[in-house]
Amino acid sequence: MTDTSAALPLLTPKRAELLRDYVPFIAIALVILLFWAISGDRFMSMRNWTFIAQQTPVLMLLAFAQLMIVTTGSIDISIGSSLAFSSFLGALGMLWFGDAGLIVGIFAGGLVGMTNGLIISLLKIPSFVTTLAVLIIVRAVVIIVSDGTAIYITDDSVSGGTNISSVAAPWLLSMGKFPAIFILAAIVALFMWAFYEKTVFGQQLRAVGGNEKVLRLVGINVTTFKIKVFAAAGLMVGLAACVNLARAGAATPQAGLMIELDAIAAVALGGTPLTGGYGSVVKTIIGALTLTIVRNGLTIAGVPPSWSQVALGVLLIAAIAISLNRSKVDVVK
């Protein structure tokens, strides 16, 4: 643990602190400039940015869900499975109850989240283990219930005796495209910001991440609070699932495979320590956007997918290594 500020006289501790605060913004600016330099107009085109604006919302909503949980010091790796489950139930809901049945998808996400919260709080099993088990179970349930087939959202009803399940919902498909998906994402982001930064609930997320024993001693019921947090995050995953259904035009059993890792990466790129206690909605949005841009930029630059995964991993470590204030971290687990 050497003090790097000694080697760099320009970087006083105060300036380093400020710089750390802006790492997510600097990172995204550098990433944009880099890909602009490499691919020119193919990257910096209206068409490509429209694509990015369509790709980011699902990841952003999942990152919001993860942000709530990470702020309390827990983690949720079941959100990819929950996304598939919720999309599937949303589509089923529409089959059963018509357009309004989509809301079943949101509640399905809330149910998975609440289940996580109940197991963690009442059985006192760490969130990583609990949500790992739920990740496996829920994905299996989706495969069993769907029998491996997808439910499609179509522009008009498929006529004639096919055994493909489909729902005619052109409105939902147009929700999945720019500008509707972008506007929806902006509205959700605004609500999330107010919720996370300004409400008593949002402040309590940070306090639980800071020291939950203190809260218990002053008589706050941390157990029920955590169940509510996982349920709220679950509802957000359910909403992301509905957006994903609109975007993909189908509920498939493979939906959201490994996307929990992207959500965690977006939160970390947004400068949120995974140990809890701190976080920012704006920076989490930047984190989700950065991740989407890097993936998009590497594809346009012709980098093969496996190599682009390597690049993303390196970016993640670099961003956290720079933004982490090591003097405030006593234990690395």
Binding site: N211, V214, G277
Partner: peptide, 11 residues
């Protein structure tokens, strides 16, 4: 005011 547990440090 509890021993070591009076305050939430990040708030």
């Amino acid at each position: 005011v509890y021993q070591d547990l009076a305050l939430v440090p990040n708030m």
